[in-house]
C-alpha cells in the first residue's frame, strides 16, 4: 500500500487513554513523530492539548470583533436613518442627529451581534452541527464524554500506514488501540 494514500474504509486509528496526563504526553509524542492529521478527544478541555496536536490559532476573535462592529454600526444606523433622513421631525429646533440618545441601542446591538458571532462562529468553525462522525463508530468512544481520553491518527495523514500507526500508538502505553471504520 502506497504511503500517503487514504485507505479504503478506514478513517484512522484511535487509542484510548486512562487520564489527561497520558493523553497529553501521547499527543505530544505523536506530533513529534511527525504526524499532522491527528485529533484528541477528552471529556473536558485540557490546557495545552490543542497545542500538542499542532492546533494553534482560531479566527474566532476576528469574527466576534467584525460582528460587533457591524452590530454597532447597524444599531446606530437604525436610530439615525428614521430620525434624520426618513422622517425628520423638528421639535423646538433641537438637533435631528441627537446621537447620545442612540448610544444605549447601539451598545445593545453591538453586544447582540458579537454574541451571535461568538456562538455561531464557534459552531461554524468547529463544523457543528455534525450528528455523524466516524469516531462514533468506535463503541468505546461513548466513554469520551465520561472519563476516557482518545487520540486518533487519521488515514489522510501523509505518513499514515496502518500497521505502523497501530504499532506506534501501542508504544504510547494506551488502554486499547482500535481502527476507526468510515
Amino acid at each position: 500500500m502506497a504511503i500517503g494514500k487514504p485507505i479504503e474504509g478506514v478513517y484512522g486509528v484511535i487509542a484510548e487513554f486512562h487520564d489527561a496526563q497520558e493523553l497529553l504526553d501521547a499527543a505530544n509524542k505523536t506530533r513529534e513523530a511527525g504526524y499532522t492529521s491527528i485529533d484528541a478527544f477528552s471529556p473536558f478541555p485540557i490546557h495545552g492539548l490543542s497545542d500538542a496536536i499542532g492546533f494553534k490559532h482560531t479566527k474566532l476573535s476576528a469574527v466576534v470583533l467584525g460582528m460587533g462592529i457591524f452590530g454597532g454600526l447597524a444599531g446606530f444606523f437604525m436610530c439615525w436613518f428614521p430620525n434624520v433622513i426618513h422622517y425628520p421631525l423638528n421639535i423646538g429646533g433641537k438637533p435631528l442627529n441627537s446621537w447620545p440618545a442612540w448610544i444605549p441601542i447601539t451598545f445593545e446591538t453591538t453586544v447582540l451581534f458579537a454574541a451571535f458571532g461568538a456562538v455561531f462562529g464557534m459552531l461554524a468553525l468547529n463544523g457543528l452541527p455534525m450528528p455523524y462522525h466516524p469516531v462514533f463508530n468506535v463503541s468505546r468512544f461513548e466513554q469520551a464524554s465520561r472519563d476516557r481520553f482518545f487520540l486518533v491518527i487519521q488515514a489522510r495523514d501523509p505518513q499514515f500506514e496502518l500497521g505502523k500507526v497501530r504499532d506506534f500508538l501501542d508504544s504510547l502505553n494506551p488502554r486499547e488501540v482500535t481502527d476507526v471504520p468510515w
Binding site: F41, S50, T58, L60, H133, V135
Partner: peptide, 12 residues
C-alpha cells in the same frame, strides 16, 4: 449538535 470533545473544538 454532534459534540465529540475534540481538542480543536474545545479550544474554540
Amino acid at each position: 449538535l454532534g459534540w465529540r470533545g475534540s481538542a480543536k473544538h474545545w479550544h474554540r
